[in-house]
């Protein structure tokens, strides 16, 4: 299962990276989102899968799933949301201001 998940993560990262490298702003945002999902899955996989019951002590189970990656991912999900929101807004604001969503036309070294 871990191996399968890691391969899934690899595929998602590849797709996400491809999208990030494309020219269109919206595709870049989509790519960032996909990479975010991939990383969350990777973190949760690294804690070992299906090793015990949910990390709730009320369950009175013999073993619990690793709670630390879960806590990390929980914060990551929420931050991901905030990052997506900011990137999305940045994206459409720059589209409105510059009238293009082509990254090659948004190059900025003339002003540096």
């Amino acid at each position: 299962m871990e191996t399968l998940m890691v391969i899934l993560v690899g595929i998602l990262v590849s797709i996400g990276t491809y999208l990030i490298l494309s020219k269109q702003l919206l595709r870049i945002v989509l790519g960032v989102s996909i990479v975010g999902h991939a990383v969350n899955l990777l973190i949760i996989t690294s804690g070992g899968l299906k090793t015990g019951s949910a990390p709730l002590l009320g369950e009175k189970a013999a073993g619990f799933a690793d709670a630390l990656p879960q806590a990390l991912v929980l914060t990551a999900i929420v931050i991901n949301f905030a990052v997506t929101a900011v990137v999305l807004v940045l994206c459409y604001r720059s589209y409105q201001s510059f009238g293009t969503d082509d990254m090659e036309q948004l190059r900025g070294n003339e002003h540096e």
Binding site: A54, L56, L57, G58, L74, T75, V78
Partner: peptide
Amino acid sequence: HHHPGGGFIGGL
């Protein structure tokens, strides 16, 4: 505190 849930989920 004892079951699934908490500030993040409740808030969201």
